[in-house]
């Protein structure tokens, strides 16, 4: 917690088991580790979301394992998967039912832009109709990326910039390069070099 001990006399600060802070910071700190996500999982990204919640990636490390499937109990909406013309009214309704403060994560290419589905039935990016705070690219994003997105939400929640904001935050998570496992790294002699002086 970003406590502020400097305002107290040194002697007092050392002896007393207290920490002074602002109420906003304290509340933000509490919120940060108790996000209750609501997975609006429609397609492939939903399965990746399940993978993140399961043992290997373990979303519980970030205090966000308490999935609530009712919007009234959750404060973080994960839109995982493409949203179609038939599904969009449902999404809007769910967003409206969530209580403040609330954040929306658009997970994957389909939710953010329509992805490969540039067709008559798919909404080309949910941000046209619902405010989106964090975009996670990838089709579907790797679990590490999803965790990165969640940590971004934690940062936003800790800063307490929720009440009376008029615009969605629109943070984009950068894709990170994942290291190749050593056993699969090509050896120097295996790499095919173009013959002649092509480059």
């Amino acid at each position: 917690m970003d406590g502020n001990r400097n305002n107290l006399p040194d002697a007092l600060a050392d002896k007393l088991p207290i920490l002074t802070t602002t109420l906003d910071t304290a509340v933000g700190w509490c919120r940060k580790y108790s996000l209750w996500p609501m997975p609006f999982a429609t397609a492939c990204c939903g399965i990746e979301f399940m993978a993140v919640a399961c043992s290997r990636f373990d979303l519980a490390r970030f205090g966000a394992e308490a999935m609530r499937f009712t919007p009234r109990q959750s404060d973080l909406l994960f839109v995982a998967g493409r949203v179609t013309v038939k599904m969009l009214p449902v999404l809007q309704r769910i967003y409206q039912q969530m209580c403040e403060p609330k954040w929306v994560v658009s997970m994957g290419a389909c939710a953010s832009t329509g992805g490969v589905f540039d067709t008559y039935a798919v909404v080309q990016g949910i941000d046209q109709y619902v405010p989106v705070d964090v975009y996670i690219p990838g089709c579907p994003p790797r679990p590490e990326q999803l965790i990165e997105g969640l940590m971004q939400i934690q940062k936003i929640a800790a800063e307490g910039k929720t009440q009376s904001r008029s615009k969605p935050l629109g943070v984009v998570i950068e894709p990170k390069r994942t290291p190749v496992p050593l056993s699969l790294k090509p050896k120097e002699e295996d790499i095919l070099k173009p013959p002649g002086s092509m480059c």
């Binding site: 039935a121 008029s166 615009k167």
Partner: peptide, 26 residues
């Protein structure tokens, strides 16, 4: 009828025909 050859792939504006909701209106 979307799968008829006369119907365009990107539709006839169905996917753009919704009212957006904002952080204020919700």
């Amino acid at each position: 009828y979307p799968l008829r050859k006369t119907y365009p792939l990107k539709g006839q504006g169905e996917r753009e025909s919704f009212t957006p909701i904002t952080t204020e209106s919700a």
